[in-house]
């Protein structure tokens, strides 16, 4: 009887995720344009990727992205959360403001930043240029495009970390904090020896999820630069999307999807172990 209860969830999940995922793995060994019959080509899709300059560029960009998101949002989140704990009064108000960027669609955020900040005619960049600052639209240059996009995603993201860490910090036993204070702990000592150890499980979980999410990043890159200029901001997910739907190299796209999944799989392994470690 109870098996019947979980049936709808499982049927939908397996039909939408598992079966297509298995097909993707199979397709990675075929050449297919989405219309005619697939042709088995063994490892050729992977060999192609190995020799594909853009693939390495995209992989490198995903790793840079991971490094950026493992540091900035987590540090900003921790600092802001600890300050919210310090002031207490107004913490709900601040949390709501910090979450505004998170609840807004990536498409909207991307366009607002493009038009009102980065734009060399209508944005803040243009305004500052007129005051003599040597600025330019970061999205227009190969050296800075990826970082230009990352800044917008960081803006959208750090509030989430702050709110998560604040929720965790509130569960750190008050006595520990008081004891440290009575012994005259400074802010950094408090962070290092009481607060961070107290919420370590949450930080670890967020870092694992950050690795997974960093390999999934799509919306901001696709909307703001389409991976350009000259593939300089291409990431694996936008590259796979382009291969499948623009160039109709579905086998090639499937091979990229498998590479993305491998990074996620390693992180998922740690994630599941952590979940199990929590008991229940």
């Amino acid at each position: 009887m109870y098996r019947l209860f979980i049936l709808p969830t499982m049927i939908i999940n397996i039909a939408v995720i598992s079966i297509p995922a298995i097909l993707t793995i199979i397709l990675a060994f075929y050449r297919w344009d989405g219309i005619s019959d697939p042709v088995f080509i063994g490892l050729e899709n992977f060999e192609r990727l190995w020799n594909d300059r853009i693939f390495w560029k995209a992989l490198r960009n995903n790793l840079i992205w991971t490094a950026l998101f493992l540091t900035f949002p987590i540090i900003i989140g921790l600092v802001v959360a600890s300050l919210l704990l310090t002031v207490r009064r107004g913490s709900t108000f601040f949390q709501i403001i910090y979450l505004f960027p998170l609840v807004i669609s990536a498409v909207i955020s991307a366009r607002v930043w493009q038009g009102m900040i980065y734009n060399p005619q209508s944005g803040i960049v243009a305004l500052l240029e007129r005051y003599g600052l040597d600025l330019y639209d970061p999205l227009s240059r190969t050296a800075t495009a990826l970082y230009g996009v990352a800044v917008v995603d960081l803006w959208h993201w750090w509030g989430f970390m702050a709110v998560i860490f604040f929720a965790a910090l509130r569960q750190v036993p008050q006595e520990q904090i008081e004891a440290a204070r009575l012994e005259g702990a400074t802010y950094f000592q408090m962070m290092r020896w009481v607060l961070i150890p107290g919420i370590m499980p949450t930080i670890t979980l967020m870092m694992i999820m950050t690795v997974i999410w960093s390999f999934l990043v799509f919306d901001f890159v696709y909307v703001m630069t389409q991976g350009g200029p000259a593939s300089s901001s291409e990431v694996l997910s936008t590259m796979a999307y382009r291969r499948a739907f623009y160039e109709l190299k579905v086998g090639n796209a499937a091979a990229i999807a498998i590479v993305i999944s491998l990074f996620g799989l390693v992180a998922t392994f740690f994630y599941l172990r952590l979940q199990r470690g929590e008991g229940e």
Partner: peptide
């Protein structure tokens, strides 16, 4: 029930699956 642990693990695993892993066959 014993298999529920498996169901939970399966569901957690699918939350981390990249959309591109199932998007292309699903679309076609």
């Amino acid at each position: 029930i014993k298999t529920w642990a498996l169901v939970t693990a399966y569901l957690l695993a699918t939350t981390t699956a990249p959309i591109q892993l199932f998007l292309f066959p699903l679309y076609f």
